[in-house]
Structure formats: C-alpha cells, structure tokens
Nucleic acid binder design. Structure first.
Length: 264
DNA sequence: ATGGCGAGCGGAGCTCGA
C-alpha cells in the first residue's frame, strides 16, 4: 500500500495536479493539508471518478485537511479529543483528520505554524503537539498501526534548512518545537522519511519568494511518523521533489510512504 | 533553467503562510 502526504495549498487551485500525482505515483491513500475550502467546496467528483473515497474536514479558506483512499476509508474522525482551540472565539481548527485505510490508521495533520515566538499561536502550536502526543502514546500502547503524516511545521535539525542562522529567533527551529517533535520518537514512533532519506538538506518545502526553489533553499517540515506496530512494515519513503517544478506548484511536495500490507 | 509570491475573498487590499 502506498500512502502519500501533501500540503497542497488549495485543492481547488490544484485538483489537476493532485489527480496527475495520484495516477503517476499509483497512490492508494493521500493525506492532504491546506485544502483551503469548506467540505461542500471540495472538488470530489474528479477524485471519485478516479476510484477514491474522500473524507474532508474544512470550515473556511484557512487550513483544511482531507484523506483520499481507494483501499477503504473507515472510522473517519475530524479532530482529536481535547484538540486545543484557537481564535477570538476559541474553536477547534480543521487541522487533523483520522481515518482507517487498508488496516492503517492514517492521520492527516496540519500543525499550527506558530507565527512568532511571542505570538499566542506559538503556545497553541506547542499545546497542540503535546495533546496529539498523548493520543499517540495511547495508540502505540494499544498496538495500533498508526501513520501520523503531514505538515509538522517544525525543522527538526539544523541541516533541515538551507541556513539555520537566518531563522534565529523565529518559529520552526526553536528548541521547544524541536522537543515537541522529538517527543513522538521518544514515545516509540519512527519518522520514516528520516530513516529512508537521512541525507542533509533534503527539503519538502520551498518558499514561493526569492527564487528559493531554483536556489534549493528549502526546509524539511513534512514528515511521516509511524507507530511501533507499523514501522517494520514500511519498505520505502520518497520525496517527490519534481512536483515543485513548473507553473502552479504547491510550495510543498508530497512525501510517499510504501507499506507492506501483505500480512494485514 | 526548475524562476522573480500565491490563494481566498471580494471586487482593493487584506490575512495567512514559513
């Protein structure tokens, strides 16, 4: 089974690219982030015609997550219990969606950005990751095969960005964020993109501005954490860097995880 | 060259992103 995760930066602007990607890479399950639409606005028809079931979770033009699957889509869960809220009128944002696909519990995650170290969004980000980790521990203890995939908005290592000094004092590289990210590994999860692609300066995101992609000045912020029961079944991970090329690309590229489900 | 912000909303210029 092939699972992919992709911050697509608007599904309506890039439905064609998503369809081409699914076909090109023969993807079974696609976790999307930043769909940027309400559930009713999601362009379902083209994906259904291609053989996918669709679960969406979106309230507005902000955030939004979805899961497409052609290997089953069960127990769909918008958000996780106790998910921290944000906003003037605090509310759960559309940043997490769980579904069971072909024996694997997949969570499409769009971790809050943080905005700045002194911004309330930063505390929100840390609380959000902390609460998710509590669930992750319980799922691992239960022996579940869990894939926590998405845009984590954390740069775990200095070598996951072209010039870490340029990010001094900013979000994504701060120690509390890195600690919150590592906490999943300490809970027994394995970030399998690192396992299969350990080389430095291998990015999943390049800003639209300042020729970041042509200069290969990017960041590695999209990851796939697998639970102890799932990790041994992962046979390969790839980053589809070519998806960043050309007109109309998202600023993120897909991360592709292959799972041996022959025993499931 | 793989390219110089992009998307949504709304109908200009703002918010958000990382």
């Amino acid at each position: 089974m092939r699972i992919a995760t992709w911050n697509i930066n608007s599904i309506r602007a890039r439905a064609d690219r998503a369809l081409a990607f699914l076909e090109r890479e023969d993807v079974d399950v696609l976790a999307l982030q930043e769909t940027k639409c309400k559930d009713a606005q999601f362009p379902r028809e083209a994906f259904e015609a291609a053989g996918y079931e669709i679960a969406t979770f979106g309230f507005s033009q902000w955030n939004g997550v979805a899961i497409l699957s052609r290997v089953g889509l069960d127990d769909v869960t918008p958000g996780f219990d106790g998910q921290p809220e944000f906003g003037e009128t605090p509310a759960v944002e559309a940043r997490a969606l769980g579904a069971t696909c072909g024996g694997v519990r997949v969570w499409s995650l769009y971790v809050p950005h943080g905005r700045a170290l002194d911004n309330p969004h930063y505390a929100y980000k840390l609380a959000w990751l902390g609460r998710l980790r509590e669930h992750a521990v319980a799922w691992a203890d239960a022996g579940d095969k869990v894939a926590l995939v998405g845009d984590w908005n954390v740069v775990p290592l200095d070598t996951d960005v072209w010039d870490v000094a340029a990010f001094e004092g900013q979000t994504h590289v701060s120690e509390p964020e890195r600690e919150a990210f590592r906490a999943f590994a300490e809970a027994g999860y394995t970030e399998v993109s690192r396992q299969f692609l350990p080389d430095e300066h291998r990015y999943t995101y390049w800003d639209y501005q300042q020729l970041r992609f042509p200069r290969n000045e990017g960041m590695r912020i999209d990851f796939a954490y697998t639970s102890p029961a799932l990790t041994p079944l992962v046979t390969d991970v790839r980053i589809d860097r070519d998806e960043r090329r050309g007109k109309g690309a998202s600023d993120h590229v897909p991360v592709i995880v292959d799972v041996d489900t022959s025993a499931l």
